[in-house]
């Protein structure tokens, strides 16, 4: 009864994966029927291209930066949401929206908030007299601000996900552990940092590992918000692969760029298995 599912997955995951490797070592282009083996040529040329280097840098900035924001924010939020209070269900619904909404739609919402002319953020800044009318920066039009915007939208989207996972981790800790700490004389901070945080480590790593995958392999946020611009300054590996491989018809280059995601994915998968294994042992 296992066979159909395994076969389906092999055909649609392992098959295309092998095909991607095959393309990456060839000169495949859309419309080109003759394939030639070109060795490492594709990898050499992408390594030399400046847009690839920017994409690598951005992929890491977005991934690491957003994970730092997400873990700090969701740890705080998980503490605040742990005890029941009136209206918690409603608030939880509202706070989950960024994660539940289709990424493309959340991103387009932000595109409107960060609009070059009608941005509500700019309006507030102008109203506070921090900027002159029309003087507020173009959030998505200047490279540094665009990078910061993409990073924040990624964080915004992942905070709810990370929060519910950490919340599950906190509820799984027996209540008498923090109580024992209280009786032992520990205050809020000591209990959080010396007792609960170390006990939460496995679950925090799960949240971080998933978060890394979701951010590192995502192209939607960048595609919608900036389409990689201005001047390729926010391009990430997946969006670059899309730009070259699909829009630019250069399948080989696109496949080669996609494959550069693999080493990190393997590391994440390995770490994930270790966490799961540890959790089983203890």
């Amino acid at each position: 009864m296992l066979a159909p599912a395994v076969l389906y997955i092999l055909l649609l995951v392992a098959g295309p994966f092998l095909l991607a490797i095959f393309y990456a070592f060839s000169d495949a282009r859309i419309g080109n029927t003759q394939l030639h083996f070109v060795g490492l040529e594709n990898f050499r040329s992408i390594l030399q291209s400046p847009s690839f280097r920017i994409a690598v840098r951005n992929s890491f900035i977005f991934t690491i930066g957003s994970q730092i924001v997400v873990i700090i924010a969701s740890s705080i939020l998980a503490i605040a949401l742990e005890q029941p209070f009136r209206g918690r269900g409603m608030l939880r619904f509202l706070m989950l929206l960024p994660w539940v909404a289709p990424i493309a739609l959340g991103a387009i919402g932000w595109k409107w908030i960060l609009d070059s002319i009608y941005s509500v953020i700019s309006w507030v800044l102008v109203a506070l007299h921090l900027y002159k009318p029309f003087g507020a920066p173009m959030w998505l039009g200047e490279p540094h601000l665009a990078i910061a915007s993409v990073l924040l939208v990624h964080s915004w989207r992942l905070i709810p996900f990370s929060t519910v996972i950490l919340l599950a981790g906190r509820t799984a800790i027996p209540k008498d552990i923090p109580e024992a700490a209280a009786v032992d004389g520990a205050g809020f901070w000591r209990t959080e940092f010396l007792i609960l945080l170390p006990m939460m480590m496995p679950i925090i790593s799960v949240a971080v590992l998933f978060g890394i995958i979701f951010t590192f392999t995502d192209m939607t946020v960048v595609y919608i918000l900036t389409a990689g611009g201005p001047f390729d300054s926010t391009q990430v590996l997946p969006s670059l692969a899309f730009t070259l491989g699909i829009q630019g018809s250069d399948l080989a280059a696109g496949a080669a760029i996609s494959l550069t995601l693999v080493p990190l994915l393997v590391i994440i998968a390995y770490l994930m298995l270790r966490v799961a294994h540890r959790a089983e042992v203890t």
């Binding site: 109580e179 024992a180 700490a181 032992d184 520990a186």
Partner: peptide
Amino acid sequence: PRERRIAMVFQSYALYPHLSVYRNIAFP
């Protein structure tokens, strides 16, 4: 609780699982 100068032993013992016995006892 910490201002009451009490000590409590819980039914589950509530030992801190990530700390050694030494650090458990030293925690208070």
